[in-house]
């Protein structure tokens, strides 16, 4: 069995991918589990990881690409240093989160799913982070800012913008 657990695509190239392949059996069912770990580790799913998984799980790359582009958690490009996510779940929407999203796009001059040229900020649309009691909310790298207003967003962006 030891032999089959070797990942032909990445051996000796990337310690993370090698470890990942050791952790999971080479069966297709594990694809999403493994992609979740890749996304977590790199912040996106790089091509080399797609190729390594394709070799290891014997799944064509087109199918892996199809899975990555199906699930919104997986991204193909690295996110910004500060990933700002605005909740557009119903509870937040009803409390005006769209205005916050609009303002965010206006400030950063990028669309949802994009990263600023300097790699500092990226925008994400999320559906319910579970803090409905604090609606509307946005998060920066996972930290929740509740009862958000456009002013609060501006303030947070200003602070992050100055930090370096």
């Amino acid at each position: 069995m030891g032999e089959t657990k070797r990942c032909p695509g990445c051996t000796g190239k990337d310690p993370f991918l090698e470890e990942l392949c050791k952790k999971y059996e080479p069966i297709k069912d594990n694809l999403i589990q493994m992609l979740n770990e890749v996304q977590e580790h790199y912040g996106y799913v790089p091509t080399k990881a797609q190729q390594a998984l394709s070799d290891y799980l014997k799944v064509p790359m087109a199918e892996i690409y199809g899975v990555i582009t199906f699930y919104s958690r997986f991204t193909l490009k690295p996110k910004g240093k500060y990933n700002v996510a605005v909740c557009l779940g119903t509870a937040c929407f009803v409390k005006g989160s769209q205005k916050i999203m609009d303002r965010l796009k206006e400030r950063l001059k990028i669309e949802a799913g994009e990263t600023t040229k300097d790699g500092k900020f990226s925008i994400e649309e999320t559906r319910c982070v579970g803090a409905c009691g604090l609606a509307p909310v946005f998060t920066v790298n996972g930290e929740v800012y509740g009862k958000a207003t456009v002013q609060k967003l501006d303030q947070v962006l200003d602070e992050l913008g100055e930090k370096e």
Partner: peptide, 28 residues
């Protein structure tokens, strides 16, 4: 059993494509 093409994206944006939208010439 080649799988050079597959369904990618979701919803109205769904399409049949190759990995990374490469040309068929550059895939399996």
């Amino acid at each position: 059993k080649i799988g050079a093409i597959d369904t990618v994206n979701r919803g109205f944006e769904s399409c049949i494509s190759t990995v990374g939208n490469l040309s068929l010439n550059d895939v399996n």
